[in-house]
Amino acid sequence: MSRQQGITICLLMFGLTFISLGMAFKPKFDYAPIFGWGLGLFTFLIDIFYMRKHFKNKK
């Protein structure tokens, strides 16, 4: 596995973790799902921009 693939997988796992934790803390904090989805989507967007940059440099 290359370094770029490892970073991509790590960012995807962080995004899924943020969303899962936001939903898990829903009974404790009212706004936990909003923060979880927001952070998850933010990490997914970072991953998309990172992969676009990587593919552009690869060609």
Score class of each variant (00 low, 15 high):
residue 24 A to V: 01
residue 58 K to V: 02
residue 12 L to S: 12
residue 3 R to M: 12
residue 47 D to S: 11
residue 41 L to S: 07
residue 31 Y to F: 11
residue 18 F to S: 14
residue 56 K to W: 08
residue 40 G to V: 07
residue 40 G to R: 03
residue 34 I to C: 00
residue 6 G to Q: 15
residue 55 F to N: 13
residue 17 T to Y: 14
residue 43 T to E: 06
residue 32 A to K: 07
residue 46 I to W: 02
residue 11 L to P: 05
residue 14 F to K: 05
residue 20 S to W: 09
residue 57 N to T: 08
residue 13 M to Y: 01
residue 15 G to Y: 02
residue 39 L to P: 06
residue 25 F to K: 10
residue 53 K to L: 15
residue 6 G to T: 08
residue 4 Q to T: 13
residue 29 F to H: 04
residue 18 F to I: 04
residue 29 F to T: 05
residue 22 G to T: 00
residue 18 F to C: 15
residue 6 G to D: 11
residue 1 M to T: 08
residue 55 F to R: 14
residue 21 L to P: 01
residue 47 D to N: 11
residue 35 F to Q: 04
residue 16 L to H: 07
residue 40 G to F: 06
residue 42 F to H: 03
residue 57 N to A: 15
residue 9 I to T: 03
residue 26 K to C: 08
residue 11 L to I: 06
residue 58 K to R: 09
residue 13 M to I: 11
residue 11 L to W: 02
residue 52 R to C: 06
residue 15 G to P: 02
residue 29 F to M: 08
residue 41 L to Y: 03
residue 12 L to N: 05
residue 36 G to N: 03
residue 15 G to A: 15
residue 51 M to S: 10
residue 56 K to N: 09
residue 27 P to Y: 00
residue 47 D to W: 00
residue 12 L to F: 10
residue 6 G to I: 09
residue 42 F to I: 08
residue 43 T to C: 09
residue 35 F to L: 13
residue 22 G to L: 04
residue 54 H to V: 15
residue 11 L to N: 04
residue 18 F to A: 15
residue 38 G to F: 03
residue 48 I to H: 01
residue 15 G to W: 06
residue 47 D to G: 06
residue 8 T to V: 12
residue 46 I to H: 02
residue 26 K to T: 12
residue 37 W to Y: 14
residue 5 Q to D: 15
residue 50 Y to C: 09
residue 55 F to P: 02
residue 23 M to K: 04
residue 19 I to G: 13
residue 2 S to H: 05
residue 33 P to M: 08
residue 8 T to Q: 10
residue 33 P to F: 08
residue 3 R to E: 14
residue 13 M to G: 07
residue 12 L to Q: 09
residue 13 M to T: 09
